[in-house]
C-alpha cells in the first residue's frame, strides 16, 4: 500500500491534468456564509483528502462538485466549479448527467430497500439498460471493482439491508461505479465502520486510482495521511491550506493546520 502511494506521489513532479478547477467558490445557505472564496485544483487520478473540524465546510464543498447542494433550501452559489473546463453551475448543464460523471458515497450507507443486484442495477436501469445479460455484467464488474463480489456473489437476490455496514458501504461504492463515473466523492465513508472495513475501503480506493479521480472528506486525519496524495485543510468555511499530504502533516505552513493536526483543537 505504502509503495503504491509513494509511486503515485513521485508522478507529482510531472505535469498533471486538472480534472476539477474550483475558483472563488462562495456558498450561502440563507444568511449563512458556508464557503468563503475556495480556490483549488483537483488533478486527474489523484486522491485528494479534505480534512477539518465539524462545520468547516468540507462536506459542503464536496456536495458542490456534483450539485447535491441544489437540494438544500436557500442554497446560493457564486464562483466557478470547472469539470474538464466546463462550469457545472452553468444553466445549460444536465444535472443528472453531471451526477453520473461525479459519483458520491455518503457518510452513512444508503442502500435502497431492494436486492443487492437491483441496487447496483438501479443507475444503469435509469439510463435505459433493461437487458438482463448486460445488467448482470455491470453488476459483476462493479462489485468486483468495489472488492465485494466474492462476499456477495451468492447473495445477489438477498436484500441489501441484510449486509453488514462495511459491505453496505462498499455496495454503495459499487452502485456509484455502475454508472461509470469519472470522479468519486467520499463523504466520511468510514465514519461508522470498524477498522477492517475501513481498511477494505481504503484498499479499494488505491485500486480505483488508475481509473478515477477521488476526493475524500474525512474526520479522521490518520486516514487522510494514509490514503491521500494531497490534503486540503478547511476551517470555518475557508480553505486554510492545500498541499502534498506529507508536507501538510509534517511541516504545515499555517499555524491553524498544525494545531488541528496535532489535536490542539477541533
Amino acid at each position: 500500500m505504502v509503495e503504491q502511494q509513494s509511486s503515485v506521489v513521485s508522478r507529482q513532479s510531472s505535469e498533471r491534468n486538472v480534472k476539477i478547477n474550483v475558483g472563488n467558490l462562495n456558498v450561502y445557505f440563507g444568511a449563512i456564509h458556508a464557503l468563503r472564496n475556495i480556490s483549488l485544483e483537483v488533478y486527474k487520478n489523484e486522491i485528494l483528502a479534505a480534512i477539518g473540524p465539524a462545520n468547516s465546510g468540507k462536506t459542503t464543498f464536496l456536495r458542490c462538485l456534483n450539485r447535491m447542494n441544489d437540494l438544500q433550501p436557500n442554497f446560493r452559489v457564486e464562483g466557478k466549479v470547472l469539470l474538464d473546463g466546463k462550469n457545472v453551475y452553468d444553466t445549460a448543464v444536465d444535472v443528472p448527467f453531471l451526477r453520473r460523471r461525479v459519483g458520491v458515497v455518503f457518510a452513512t450507507p444508503t442502500p435502497l430497500p431492494m436486492s443487492v443486484f437491483e441496487n447496483i442495477a438501479y443507475g444503469p436501469r435509469r439510463l435505459g439498460t433493461g437487458k438482463r445479460s448486460i445488467l448482470e455484467k455491470i453488476v459483476e464488474r462493479s462489485l468486483k471493482k468495489a472488492a465485494l463480489w466474492d462476499e456477495v456473489k451468492n447473495r445477489l437476490r438477498d436484500s441489501a439491508l441484510k449486509l453488514s455496514g462495511g459491505q453496505q458501504q462498499r455496495l454503495c461504492l459499487a452502485r456509484a461505479l455502475a454508472v461509470e463515473p469519472e470522479v468519486i466523492l467520499y463523504d466520511e465513508p468510514c465514519s461508522g465502520l470498524d477498522p477492517i472495513s475501513t481498511a477494505k475501503i481504503e484498499e479499494t480506493m488505491f485500486e480505483l486510482q488508475k481509473d478515477y479521480t477521488q476526493i475524500l472528506v474525512t474526520n479522521n486525519t490518520k486516514q487522510a495521511a494514509r490514503v491521500s496524495e494531497r490534503t486540503a485543510f478547511f476551517l470555518m468555511g475557508e480553505l486554510v491550506e492545500i498541499g502534498l499530504t506529507d508536507k501538510i502533516f509534517t511541516a504545515p505552513q499555517d499555524q491553524r493546520t498544525e494545531d488541528y493536526i496535532t489535536g490542539r483543537f477541533g
Partner: peptide, 16 residues
C-alpha cells in the same frame, strides 16, 4: 430522505 438522495446521486432524474 436518504432514498431520494441515493437515487439522485446516481444520476436519476427527479421523476425517476
Amino acid at each position: 430522505y436518504s432514498f431520494r438522495e441515493a437515487s439522485l446521486a446516481l444520476g436519476a432524474t427527479r421523476w425517476q
